[in-house]
Nucleic acid binder design. Structure first.
Length: 714
DNA sequence: ATAGGGTTAG
């Protein structure tokens, strides 16, 4: 990484370093979701002193294709003889027997006529529906629009008109109009389509009122009535009301069918009642209802929402066993749930299967894939999906753009993020929001690009967004890395001016900045830390005062601090505090903190022993903490040697691979040079990445020579 | 497109 590190003062040797899932990072809003892991791989710098650490069957089986002229107002007023569709009989002549064309319904001619005649009628009805949506909700205005239908209205016309309406004010008036003028044979259908209008507007109140009205009028509700109201309740995020309606069905003589089950499976799932959803599925299965792909998709989603991701895959397998062919919706749902499950590899194999089965990805497919890859930080895969979407002209929305930009921030794709941000701005539909700016500022901050971060901040302000805690945390990290301590302080004051309360992560970032700041500037930052979090301020103060305090106080205060902060930041705080100790040459204090970290189980499994190998695991430690742990381990090994303990054939240190986009040199690299410096006989294992190994013999002789050296010094 | 089920998330 190109960070500007803390100035290389002669007394402090500085090392670029990042640490892993223990680190405090500039926050991203993504991390607020429950699906996000608590911690992410992140970069950090530590300055450390090294030497210390269906089209329904054509219902026109009718051979009669005689139809009226298109029912638009214009044609009503125009001279029929001038009608462009003069091949069809006009309305006036339709009363004469000659007006009927009799055609074999199976002939291509019939289907052509059907389509044409249907199309023209249908589209006029749709236009009338639109006019009804925009007219005043008065009987007069509604009647004026409906006049254009003429007098030969059939029941189906009424159904089509209402089915296309979306205005909950005019729809009941339209319904009444038809009820008064038509002899309805299936009045329930008219009610059902009116209920759909209310559902479109998410107006459950009106839908329920309409239900009462129909019952009062003696119209018997059917399964469609119930599925419409139930799905309306579901759309209104009132799944419990959906359940109430489902339970009312028997009361009205309705037996639930497969669609009702399907809707209810979804409604129960959304109500959080997974058990009921699954028991309905069982019932549907034992009652041999045909369970279709859509219902399986719903089931997969329910399992996914309850976190049972293997359940999702089981349903998918069961579906195939039952002979239901997966469709695109199923695949998209599976991809989505595998993304939520953080199983990008499974998303990948499902996508492959989908392609092999001849399906073409649609926007939803790409969105699910992109999310699955981006959330799991499969950088290359996510970028490939992005490129493919771009090639196909599929535009991302803000959420998707933000998802991929957040990934770029996590894996250090600075240039890619810049390009994607430009793409985003060039779209007409998508404007960057505070999340977008936050991710970008984080990216520039992590890669040490101060001027870019500041430019993006200004762009954000121009777009009318106030800096939030996420942005300010990133900026503090940015200035900290660049060793611009005064700008860190200025940014901190800005946070207070904006009335934002510093959170654990923000304070952790400040603490992390301290680990990168030269000694003589630390005072400026301790002031900020004291204002931000008094407990942390006190611990830092004790630490800085070195030995001048009673034993035990420091550890107790530190323990209290760890108790007061979120479990997700404890390790990061502990790492930073140890780094600070190491920087200030307070090795004993560092050991105390490491010990406290072990006691409180902030750190686990640092040392391990098997009959054949003793190991030190420093993967999740900061450099300072890792070097402290090494120091402790060596002392433990010396003691074991003195006590005549049997050594295993191998001794090893696991640093992890230590590669990170924002970092030039990882923990492994720094550790390697430190091991050389102290002549430790550990060597990088060619077969095992991130491991430094030595033999019993080499370890023992090195420990011996170290002891004799110490004796000499003494 | 022709009375009922889902699709968009951070």
């Amino acid at each position: 990484m190109a960070h500007h590190l803390c100035s290389s003062t002669s007394s402090v040797s500085l090392h670029d370093h990042h640490c892993f899932s223990n680190s405090l990072s500039p926050p991203r809003m993504l991390q607020l979701t429950p699906f996000q892991p608590m911690l992410k791989p992140r970069n950090f710098n530590y300055s450390v002193k090294l030497n210390s650490l269906s089209l329904s069957k054509p219902s026109l089986q009718v051979t009669k294709v005689s139809l009226q002229e298109p029912l638009s107002a214009e044609t009503q007023n125009s001279n029929p003889s001038k009608s462009p569709n003069s091949q069809f009989p006009d309305k006036k002549s339709s009363s004469s027997s000659k007006s009927y064309i009799w055609v074999n319904p199976r002939s291509p001619r019939a289907s052509q006529l059907r389509r044409q005649s249907y199309d023209s009628r249908y589209s006029s009805l749709v236009k009338i529906a639109e006019s009804l949506d925009s007219c005043n909700p008065t009987v007069e205005d509604v009647s004026n629009v409906l006049v254009s239908l003429g007098d030969n209205i059939i029941e189906q016309d009424a159904v089509v008109v209402l089915n296309h309406m979306s205005n909950p004010e005019t729809a009941p008036i339209v319904l009444k109009h038809f009820q008064q003028r038509l002899k309805l044979t299936k009045e329930v259908i008219l009610y059902n389509v009116t209920l759909k209008v209310f559902r479109k507007c998410g107006d459950l109140e009106r839908a329920e009122k309409m239900f009462d009205e129909m019952v009062e009028r003696g119209v018997k509700p059917d399964n469609v009535t119930f599925s419409t109201i139930i799905s309306c309740a579901r759309l209104c995020s009132l799944p419990k009301r959906a359940v109430d309606w489902f339970e009312k069905m028997p009361e009205f003589g309705c037996e639930p069918d497969n669609v009702n089950y399907s809707v209810m499976i979804d409604a129960y799932g959304r109500a959080g009642n997974v058990d009921m959803a699954l028991s309905l599925y069982d019932r549907a299965r034992t009652e041999k209802w045909r369970i279709d792909a859509l219902t399986f998709s719903t089931l997969i989603k329910i399992y996914g929402m309850s976190g049972n991701f293997d359940g999702c895959l089981n349903v998918y397998e069961e579906m195939k066993v039952l002979g239901v062919k997966p469709n695109l919706v199923i695949y998209n749902t599976l991809l989505d749930t595998m993304g939520r499950a953080k199983r990008p590899w499974q998303a990948k194999s499902i996508y492959k299967e989908m392609m092999n089965n001849g399906f073409l990805p649609n926007w939803g497919t790409y969105a699910s894939l992109l999310r699955a890859y981006a959330r799991a930080r499969y950088g290359e895969d996510a970028l490939n999906v992005y490129k493919e979407m771009k090639e196909k002209g599929l535009e991302l929305n803000v959420i998707l753009f933000n998802t991929i930009l957040a990934m770029c921030a996590d894996v250090g794709y600075t240039d890619e993020a810049t390009e994607i941000f430009e793409d985003m701005k060039s779209t007409e539909t998508c404007k960057p929001d505070s999340w977008t700016f936050s991710s970008l500022i984080t990216i520039y901050s992590c890669s040490g690009k101060v001027s870019e971060a500041e430019a993006t901040l200004n762009e954000m302000l121009e777009a009318g967004f106030e800096p939030n805690i996420f942005v300010l945390t990133s900026l503090i990290q940015c200035y900290g890395k660049a060793n611009l301590t005064d700008d860190v302080v200025r940014t901190f004051n800005r946070l207070l001016e904006l009335g934002i309360t510093p959170d654990d992560r923000f304070c952790g970032c400040l603490l992390n900045v301290m680990t990168q700041t030269p000694k003589e500037e630390l005072g400026k930052l301790t002031n900020c830390i004291e204002k931000a979090n008094s407990k942390l301020g006190y611990v830092v103060k004790l630490l800085k005062e070195g030995e001048n305090f009673e034993g035990g106080i420091f550890k107790r205060e530190a323990a209290e601090l760890f108790d007061s902060i979120g479990a997700d930041v404890r390790k990061a705080y502990c790492n930073c505090l140890i780094d600070l100790c190491v920087n200030l040459n307070l090795l004993e204090r560092a050991c105390e903190l490491l010990d406290l970290g072990l006691t409180l189980e902030i750190y686990t499994g640092i040392q391990s022993k098997t009959p054949t190998q003793w190991s030190l695991h420093v993967k999740s430690l900061s450099l300072g903490a890792a070097l402290t742990a090494l120091h402790v381990w060596m002392n433990d090994l010396s003691r074991a040697l003195e006590n005549g303990e049997e050594f295993p054939s191998l001794l090893g240190i696991n640093t992890g691979h230590g590669k990170h986009k924002y970092s030039d040199k990882g923990l492994a690299g720094v550790f390697e040079s430190h091991l050389k410096e102290i002549n430790a006989p550990f060597h990088e294992a060619p077969e095992k990445v991130g491991w430094f190994l030595t033999t019993k013999v080499a370890a023992k002789s090195w420990l011996e020579s170290r002891r004799s050296q110490e004796l000499v010094v003494a």
